[in-house]
Design a protein around this nucleic acid. Structure first.
Lengths: 266, 266
DNA sequence: CTGAACCGGT
DNA sequence: ACCGGTTCAG
């Protein structure tokens, strides 16, 4: 028996908005620790990892570990039926092949339940090793989203370089080139507006903007984003989810900056 | 060497929004006087003239006259990457076949540079004679835009007539006719809300609404617009650009008000 | 001016 | 699904 009550239901709505365009079907794994998901995107290039810790739920009951395969598009359709202030409860009976989402309006005068069929999904749960990163950049998530969007009007890939000067986002396309440099800036009113650059070693890596722009769908989840970079390692783009966990996107760098931009490389 | 620093970068963004749909490619001419452009629209019917005087720039360095051919669509793409309160600097080295747009965020913690290829464009720089106009109408630009939009849902051409009564905008179409009369009105809170009609002689001219509606893309540049009319002369629709200059659109009147509305006449 | 919500178009 | 434009509130 599984029953997870999330007071801030809008979090779950935003999580689905953030990943449903990237991943079609995925297993949600539920254990006493929390509610989590790990999945490759449909073209098998990027990886999404979500964690919502059990402590972030008002009630958290999960009698035994369970993996629930869901079609994220359908799940998102159902969650769209929840109000932004609704309390969302996720329920599943042992051995059942369905999951139920229950939405309670804040005033308790509307209660909805939506039942969705589960599906069997081959999950290849990768152990993601904790790595040391050459550089970690934290910046306002809206600024990162704006930069990725702007650059994709010029080119298809972005080179992210971290040096003492700051972090530089560069692209090149038919109509010209673009470079955007953000300097460290901690003298701001609110800590989430800061740009903080931790650099152990300079690093410069190339990524497909298409995926970066997908990742920025998670912007509503957090006002800041953390970008962790190491040569040869996938970049990690992380949005913290207040009090609960995180959503992380992994994307392997393009090995060479060649002119053939069309086929993403793993 | 050319280096023009414009503190209110949004002006340049708005200028491009105003002309990029009318003109594909154009030469920007830079001299010690200012930064200017003159170009026919792609169907060779209307003419755009832009002037940004050097005094309006924070720094203005232009060692020698230079004409820079730009694709306005590409230029507009790049300027869209500037924030609305960014400072924009236009740079070009002597003999270079590129131009660089530099965007500085107000807080200086983000600096972007966009480099764009220049192109060779045959420019037919017309001397536009200063003319005496039979009538000059100044009115709120938003009102003029609204009138042109409204009339184009009825007909394809507008007859603009100035008499002692005021200025009348008329159209006729399959579904009926429309006349909008604006009287002089100077008793307003703000001078830019006034409608001022200077008439030496009554005048009545017919224009294609399609072009008028293009011209009103410049509405964000100025709260008022000036329409100068003389029989047989192209109308001038002018938006002043605060402290810097203007953008003017010229359009020849249609000679007769015939029923064939489809083909614009020069 | 930014952010969110909404809308229509493509 | 994405994008641009618009609007409204903060």
């Amino acid at each position: 028996m599984l029953e997870l009550r999330l007071v801030q239901g809008s979090l779950l709505k935003k999580v689905l908005e953030a990943i449903k365009d990237l991943v079609n079907d995925a297993n949600f794994d539920c254990s006493s620790t929390g509610f989590s998901l790990q999945a490759m995107d449909s073209s098998h290039v990027a990886l999404v990892a979500l964690l919502l810790r059990s402590e972030g739920f008002e009630h958290y009951r999960c009698d035994r570990n369970i993996s629930m395969g869901m079609n994220l598009n359908n799940m998102s359709k159902m969650l769209k039926c929840a109000g932004n202030d609704d309390i969302i409860t996720i329920k599943a009976d042992d051995g059942s092949d369905t999951v139920t989402f229950m939405f309670e309006s804040p005033t308790q005068d509307k209660i909805a339940d939506f039942e969705m069929k589960l599906m069997d999904i081959d999950s290849e749960h990768l152990g993601i090793p904790e790595a040391e990163y050459h550089a970690i950049v934290r910046m306002p998530s809206s600024e990162f989203a704006r930069i990725c969007k702007d650059l994709s009007s010029i080119g298809d890939t972005v080179v992210i370089s971290v040096s003492k000067e700051g972090v530089k986002f560069s692209t090149r396309g038919d109509i010209g080139t673009a470079n955007i440099v953000c300097r460290q800036n901690t003298t701001v009113d609110k800590p989430e507006e800061a740009t903080v650059i931790e650099m152990n070693e300079p690093v410069s890596l190339t990524f497909a903007l298409r995926y970066m722009n997908s990742f920025t769908k998670a912007t509503p989840l957090s006002s800041s984003v953390t970008i962790s970079l190491s040569n040869e390692l996938p970049v990690v783009v992380e949005y913290k989810i207040a009090e609960m966990g995180y959503i992380r996107f992994y994307l392997a760098p393009k090995i060479e900056e060649d002119e053939d931009e069309t086929k993403p490389q793993v």
